[in-house]
């Protein structure tokens, strides 16, 4: 089972997807339409680029700071959260899903992806 399918079938997950590093292609499963998946891909890619830049800069101030290359990030909203590792994203319902479970699956599956194309 692909990571996207695995995540999409996890309890409390609204939708999951992956996008190309260039940001022009994407694939998703779950309760989301094509336009929402496109927006999600653009947003996640932009934040991921920012996080990579920031961790690169942090590492210049502290050798072996343990933050580079960044594996991902997540942001918690009032009712929903968005988790991103490498070029995969996952939208979850805070009341029905476990961030630990989702992040664990994502990190085990793609946490070691090389960031050279970010």
């Amino acid at each position: 089972m692909s990571l996207v399918s695995d995540l999409a079938s996890t309890p409390g997950v609204l939708a999951a997807g992956e996008y190309s590093y260039r940001g022009d292609r994407f694939h998703y499963e779950g309760k989301m339409d094509n336009e929402q998946a496109r927006l999600a891909s653009i947003m996640c890619r932009a934040t991921t680029m920012g996080v990579h830049m920031q961790t690169d800069m942090l590492s210049q101030f502290a050798d072996e700071c343990g933050c580079t290359p960044a594996r991902g990030w997540f942001v918690k909203g009032k009712g929903y959260s968005v988790c991103v590792v490498a070029h995969y994203f996952c939208f979850i319902d805070n009341t029905g899903a476990s961030i630990n479970e989702v992040m664990g699956k994502m990190r085990r599956s793609v946490g070691d992806a090389t960031p050279d194309k970010v």
């Binding site: 927006l39 653009i42 947003m43 890619r45 932009a46 934040t47 680029m49 920012g50 990579h52 830049m53 690169d56 800069m57």
Partner: peptide, 19 residues
């Protein structure tokens, strides 16, 4: 290096603002 990173970040944020 910083300028390239920053350029890409500004580009990403401007894209979202437009979107």
């Amino acid at each position: 290096h910083f300028a390239l990173d920053y350029k890409r970040m500004v580009q990403g944020n401007a894209d979202q603002l437009a979107m």
